[in-house]
Amino acid sequence: MRTLTAIPHPTRRQALIVAAAALALPRPARAAGLRVATVDWAVLETLLALGVVPVAATELRQFREVAVEPPVPTTVADLGLRGTVNLEMLLLARPELIFSSSFYVSTEPRLRLIAPVESFSIYGRGQEPFAASVAMTRAIGVRLGITERAEAYLAETEAEFAALRQRLEGGPSRPVIPINLGDARHFRVFGADSMFGEVLKRLGLANAWTEPTSYSAMAPVGLEALARVPEAWIAMIPPAPPDAERILAASAFWKALPNVREGRVLALDPINPYGALPAARRFARLLVEALAARRAGHG
């Protein structure tokens, strides 16, 4: 079905096809008696982490590749692109509540024609995304009547970070620079105001990138900037253009960087850079596992 910019009037045939497909699927879990949908990935991963399966969400194929976890059940209807939500599909999903975020303010007037909208803000100038994610998790717990479940998840998060910090104790401490390749010559770097930057701080690690960033990241940054942080671990976060890593592997400049020459490049699995607590926990776990493996390998 095509993506529309206003509340559509589907043909009878379209409505019957989609309705039949929807009825063939198991009914999603209901929280506080509400059918919940979301257009934001940070909200989606938080709902799933709390055991709430929404009736619909956006870009699910991409979410499964980039965010990876929590897994998305096949019962969740895909609303298409986050920036241009398929309002026809959303209407047919019959949500009673739609969760949004500050990224999608321009879409919310149209969403409100379908169901009430509640919005959160995690990423903004001068805002700490980790604390904002904690607040969002609590707010969702209250709104959906699962306060105990939300508090348990927050306690699990703190316990996991404590265990990961302990795992790093006693090892050599170097700063980390988290980056995402744009191409073979440029990268996006995540600063202190990013979720990755906050995770580093909570793990007791320094972020090697000390220059200001805007809304969590700066891009594009020339590859030569890595020469300014020769002592750091380079944490490379997918996705990257298909040929970028191949070109880097043959680059004399890249191979001459002390970080690369001395084996301090960590190739992590994909992580949602604008996620909430599930993304923070995934980054922390993958980073500590990679550091532990590298340190063990070097004795």
Rank of each mutant, 00 (worst) to 15 (best):
L44G: 00
T5V: 11
S102N: 10
A184R: 14
L97V: 05
K201N: 04
E211D: 13
R167H: 11
E108N: 12
V39H: 03
M195Y: 08
T210G: 07
A21L: 14
A296L: 15
E160K: 06
V117Q: 01
I237N: 07
T157A: 11
I122F: 06
L4D: 11
A37E: 04
L248F: 02
E231N: 15
L91V: 09
Y123T: 00
V76M: 01
Y215A: 15
W209A: 04
I7Y: 02
T75F: 02
V260N: 01
L25D: 09
L111Q: 01
I114V: 14
G222P: 03
G191H: 02
A240F: 06
S133Y: 09
A31V: 03
L111V: 05
A20Q: 12
Y123Q: 04
P238W: 10
S101D: 09
A184N: 13
I114P: 07
E65A: 13
L203H: 05
D269T: 11
G170R: 11
V134D: 08
F253C: 10
A184M: 10
I122V: 13
A67I: 00
A32K: 01
A192K: 14
V260E: 02
E96N: 09
I247Q: 13
D183R: 11
L79G: 00
V260Y: 01
P238K: 08
A49E: 05
A56G: 08
R202N: 13
A184H: 15
P220V: 12
S194W: 00
Y104Q: 06
M218E: 12
P8L: 14
P71H: 01
A206Y: 05
A32V: 07
I179Y: 11
E45I: 01
D193I: 06
P239K: 10
L34K: 14
P258R: 10
P239C: 07
N259Y: 12
W233I: 03
T46Y: 00
G33K: 14
R61M: 12
M236L: 15
R185I: 04
T84F: 15
I146L: 15
A235P: 10
W41G: 09
E108L: 04
L48K: 06
Y274K: 09
P116I: 09
A235L: 05
E88P: 08
P26E: 10
L266N: 00
T38A: 07
I234R: 01
R143G: 02
L60T: 02
I114L: 14
E88A: 15
F103V: 02
I179T: 07
L90M: 06
P95H: 05
Q14W: 15
A290Q: 09
N259T: 15
A192E: 12
A240M: 05
T157N: 07
P70R: 02
Q62V: 14
T74W: 08
L168P: 04
S251C: 07
P71G: 04
M236P: 00
